[in-house]
Amino acid sequence: MSYVGPDSQPPRPPRRFSGGPLTVTLAALVPTCLAGWLIYEATSGPGGSEPPRTLPSTSQSAQGSVSAVPSPSKPEKDDKGDEDDKGKGEEADAKPSTTKPPKSSSRPAASGPLKGKVVVVDPGHNLGNGKHTAEINRLVNVGTHRKECDTTGTSTNNGYSEAQFTLDVSRRLRTLLEKQGATVKFTQDGDPPWGPCVDERARIGNDAHADAVVSVHADGSAAGNRGFHVILPASVKSGDADTSKIVVPSRALGERIAGKFVSATGSAPSNYIGDGTGLDVRKDLGGLNLSTVPKVFIECGNMRDAKDEALVTSGAWRQKAAQGISDGIVSFLRG
């Protein structure tokens, strides 16, 4: 920008006056003014413009001017750090358990009455089954017939799912059994996106050479139907299914669990299945038909009944349920 001011205008030619002191004075001043003008022109740069001003440095501008633009700040975390935070959020959402141990726990077994014993816990269904209907509807061979790989399970009338319930109780059960010295393995711990299929669940127990397997469930019967029941394998020999060696020990396991479940929870045996015994024998469940080790299912209550719903949605009651199942397993394995 050019500087514009009164000193930038060239002097007008002097008027001629005749005679007198004023004329003499003006004649003396004219050369002086002209010399001053020439000096100004020589020192003010081309075109009479002002010498360029030097802008303050970035740091000075930031300190003394609100128009200063700060340099972009670096992100506080790199990509890896962000991923680590996502992992923490996922673990918080997976509560009540704060970690995701593998199916075969790497934690050393504690000393206790069950040291050396292997227990497989099978949390029924899977939280992701509903998003994988094509996969879980695939038919698999369960010995006596073919049936769906898995199902979504039931839920309470207020939306608490069986898969949530079974995983929570199973994790509580694992903690109790490990304190007794048992090695505990899961068929799924909320880690696979769906399943596994019922035949694979049976295979996991078989391959582990488990001393006992318990599949944790809750029922979805009509309102008014209340209580728990334990499902035992029937005598089956068809195709890949042969329960002849596990029927007797499985019944012993189921009876121990039923008795201890009453003591721990105060719940009564089912009023709609088992004729008041809390025991039910079935031959249509692939998880039982294909098992070669002692195995039972437990339906801890009826999620569709309001009174049972109040129980299964209570963390305190779920702890009692886990305690009852654990006590039954301990009693069975100790003889």
Rank of each mutant, 00 (worst) to 15 (best):
K295N: 12
K80Y: 12
T156Y: 00
I298E: 02
I39R: 05
K77D: 15
I136E: 05
A163N: 04
P108H: 08
R53W: 14
L232W: 02
G48F: 07
T151M: 09
S244F: 04
S49G: 15
G87A: 13
A68F: 11
T151G: 14
V69F: 09
P13D: 02
Q180S: 13
V330S: 00
A223G: 14
P233M: 12
A202P: 13
V120T: 04
K245L: 15
K260N: 13
V198I: 04
L253D: 00
R12T: 05
V281A: 07
K74T: 12
N225M: 10
E162S: 06
N206F: 00
T54E: 11
V213E: 01
P21D: 09
Q188T: 05
T151V: 12
P10Y: 02
S111F: 08
S238Q: 14
V69Y: 04
E309N: 06
M303T: 00
D199I: 05
R15A: 09
V214S: 03
G128L: 06
A202E: 00
G87C: 10
N289L: 08
D84L: 07
T156L: 01
V24M: 10
R256P: 04
H132Q: 05
K307N: 14
Q164T: 13
S18W: 12
G286F: 01
D207V: 14
D78P: 04
E148G: 03
L176K: 12
I246L: 10
S238E: 11
T99F: 12
C300A: 13
A218W: 03
V66C: 11
P75Y: 03
